[in-house]
Computed example of a mutant assay.
Amino acid sequence: MNKVPMTHQGHAQLQEELRWRTQEERPRIIEAIAEARAHGDLSENAEYHAAKEAQGHNEGRISELEGLLSRADVINVSAMSGDIVKFGATVTLIDEDTEQEKVYQIVGDQEADVKAGKISISSPIARALIGKTIGDSVEVQAPGGARGYEIDDVKFV
């Protein structure tokens, strides 16, 4: 069984989603199914089929969340230190072409959100950064082509 690395924040978000899906969404869907059943003929009842599909999706996600949480390897990022990039690090990069600054935190696959500055440990940029230190240059093979970055800062917050 493979452990799934995640931060405390990512673990809490998954727990909250599981709670919402089991305690709020599941009862709502059951109510929708019961209401649709009351309308009669189920073979041509679009509301019933939509509710059953929603139920299948919700139950699938609940199983997925339970599996992820059971395999979670929660890493306390605030207890980490140093200037070597590793899981949980918040890395400040300088684009070597544009001199533009970018800040990313390396997190688990389930909590990645590029718009929020959180990149997956399995992403090309994170894989290029792991093990490097402040001042190192890295070349990242991205979908838009190769990009060069210099590591300006590494923090663990």
Results as ranks from 00 to 15, higher is better:
129 L>M: 10
8 H>Y: 11
48 Y>C: 02
74 V>H: 03
28 R>D: 13
27 P>I: 08
57 H>F: 10
47 E>D: 12
26 R>P: 03
69 L>T: 04
48 Y>R: 07
13 Q>G: 05
80 M>N: 01
50 A>K: 12
34 A>R: 14
69 L>V: 08
103 V>P: 05
110 Q>S: 14
83 D>Q: 12
117 G>N: 03
121 I>D: 10
96 E>S: 12
15 Q>M: 14
93 L>S: 06
76 N>C: 09
67 G>D: 13
128 A>M: 04
37 R>T: 11
118 K>S: 01
44 E>Y: 04
125 I>L: 13
60 G>F: 08
46 A>N: 08
16 E>Q: 14
113 D>S: 02
16 E>R: 11
69 L>G: 02
18 L>A: 07
110 Q>F: 14
60 G>W: 07
85 V>Y: 05
78 S>Q: 11
69 L>N: 03
37 R>K: 14
57 H>I: 14
123 S>M: 09
91 V>L: 01
78 S>C: 03
106 I>N: 05
52 K>V: 15
109 D>H: 03
85 V>Q: 02
7 T>L: 06
6 M>R: 00
73 D>A: 12
46 A>F: 06
56 G>P: 04
115 K>E: 15
115 K>Q: 14
85 V>W: 07
3 K>C: 07
129 L>H: 05
25 E>K: 12
98 T>S: 14
2 N>K: 15
70 S>R: 11
78 S>T: 14
68 L>S: 00
45 N>R: 02
35 E>S: 13
111 E>P: 01
32 A>T: 08
101 E>F: 07
47 E>Q: 11
19 R>D: 08
57 H>S: 11
51 A>I: 05
23 Q>D: 13
47 E>N: 09
52 K>E: 15
109 D>E: 14
51 A>L: 02
12 A>F: 13
104 Y>L: 07
96 E>Y: 06
77 V>E: 05
44 E>N: 13
29 I>W: 00
120 S>N: 00
48 Y>P: 04
89 A>R: 06
116 A>H: 09
24 E>K: 13
85 V>N: 02
125 I>K: 03
80 M>W: 06
76 N>D: 15
82 G>Y: 08
89 A>M: 06
27 P>E: 03
45 N>Q: 02
90 T>R: 14
68 L>Y: 10
61 R>P: 02
92 T>F: 00
103 V>I: 14
50 A>H: 12
76 N>V: 13
62 I>H: 06
130 I>E: 04
69 L>D: 03
8 H>T: 13
116 A>Q: 13
48 Y>H: 04
31 E>Y: 11
28 R>N: 13
9 Q>N: 12
125 I>D: 03
32 A>F: 06
78 S>F: 09
115 K>D: 14
66 E>D: 10
131 G>F: 10
69 L>E: 04
117 G>W: 04
84 I>W: 00
119 I>S: 00
